[in-house]
Simulated scan of single mutants.
Amino acid sequence: MTYPLVPAPPRPPDLAPRPMEYPQVLRGPRHRWWRPLLSLVILVAGTLLVMILGMVASMVAVALSGGDVEKWARSAADAAMTPGLFLATNLMLAALIPVSMLAVWIGHGVSSRWLRSVVGRFRWGWFARCLAVLTPLWLVYTGLGIAVDGAPEGGRPKEWLALLVIMLLTTPVQCAGEEFLFRGWVLTSLGSWFRHRWIALAVPMVVSCAGFSAAHGSKDVWVVADLSVFAITACLLTWRTGGLEAAIALHCVNNMLVMGISIALGGFDQGFIDGETTSSPLPVVTSIVVMSVAYALVEWQARRAGIQRRSTPQIPPPPMVPASPASPDSPASPTSPVAPGPV
């Protein structure tokens, strides 16, 4: 006896059957309580692998170019930002993009495209619009800083041209890598744990601030506060606009202008935050004002552009009824041929 082939049950959709904000975009039919934990394991393992491979590749490149590997290692430990170390650092941070996407794809069992935005893609037009409104603000911000504090000390670095080229080519993807991890993965993966929308935003935001500040190394309370202001603003922009574009634009504008000025005028090494960096209350207050204006500008543009901030519902397919073989003794169905009878 032959049996009819029963097709495999349809795969559940990625997204929930109702609109969800960005922090809960992964809380769909495939969500399970253990998935963020699996995603975290993949993220940590991938990040460590990137760091190890990046350092090994850098040392090999130094050795092949005839450089002194020990001298390079000492300069890296002393945070002397040579062109080679600058390039290696930016590329390792840029590698957080595929690491974060892989953690979502394997850990949560959904397409990693939802990490970009609630529409499943990177909205380049919206990204350009954010750059256009944030760049003038940062030009005024950095210009006033130079006018008040004066030009940075130390003069232009002797390898300024190489540093400038590396900055232009790799700093945008470095900024994107940090945002994919500290805003993208943290908000969506941890946010999927919580049913209430405000808890799904608040808890990951605290984790994002703590992780972003710790990654920079400084334990100074004012440096941590300044970094936390930036992290909170980036989280709120991501939540409000339903994607990473605005946060990446904010990060790019800040890093590109600050680094560009330090390369042109001096103080490039001092522009990087490490364990020895300290600050004071005034920069924190300034950051609060500037970040508030930045958020207001992006909010204004998001309303004008009608930016989608919630996912489009995906309806799960109806359950399949397994087919059963027909029995000779079973009554004929309405579609079965029947013998003619008396009328």
Rank of each mutant, 00 (worst) to 15 (best):
V25Y: 09
G109K: 11
P281L: 03
P316S: 11
L161Q: 07
G341F: 05
P340C: 05
R27H: 14
V258S: 14
Q308E: 14
F212V: 00
P204R: 05
A132M: 02
F230A: 05
T277E: 04
V44Q: 03
V140Q: 03
A200I: 01
L40V: 05
I199K: 06
I315S: 11
A294Q: 04
T278E: 13
V253A: 12
F212N: 03
A249H: 09
G150W: 04
R35C: 11
D220P: 01
N254D: 11
L131T: 00
C130D: 05
A94M: 09
G145R: 05
M259H: 11
L201M: 11
L181V: 11
C209L: 09
V289F: 13
L131F: 04
S213P: 00
G267A: 10
G211D: 07
L163D: 15
A162K: 12
A79R: 13
A231H: 12
Y141I: 05
A210W: 05
G275C: 07
V119M: 11
G155M: 08
L265M: 03
S192R: 00
G66V: 06
A247K: 04
L265Q: 07
P204V: 06
R30N: 10
P10K: 06
S336E: 03
A326I: 07
M291Y: 10
D68N: 08
F272E: 06
T188C: 03
A225E: 00
R129W: 07
G120M: 03
Q24T: 02
S192D: 03
P98F: 02
I97L: 15
L169R: 01
V119E: 15
E159A: 14
L48H: 05
P7C: 07
T170I: 06
R11I: 09
L227N: 00
A215E: 01
P283C: 01
S292T: 15
A79P: 02
L168E: 08
V41P: 08
A326K: 15
T47L: 08
V50W: 05
S192L: 02
P12R: 03
P325S: 14
P342F: 13
V285I: 15
I146Q: 12
F127L: 02
E21K: 13
V99A: 12
T286F: 06
M20D: 10
V224S: 03
D14H: 02
E179Y: 09
V289A: 14
V206R: 05
C130A: 10
K219T: 07
P204Y: 04
W193K: 06
A76C: 09
M92Q: 09
Q314P: 14
T278G: 06
G271R: 01
I146S: 15
A200S: 12
S292N: 14
P325Q: 13
A246D: 07
L237R: 00
L26W: 09
G67Q: 02
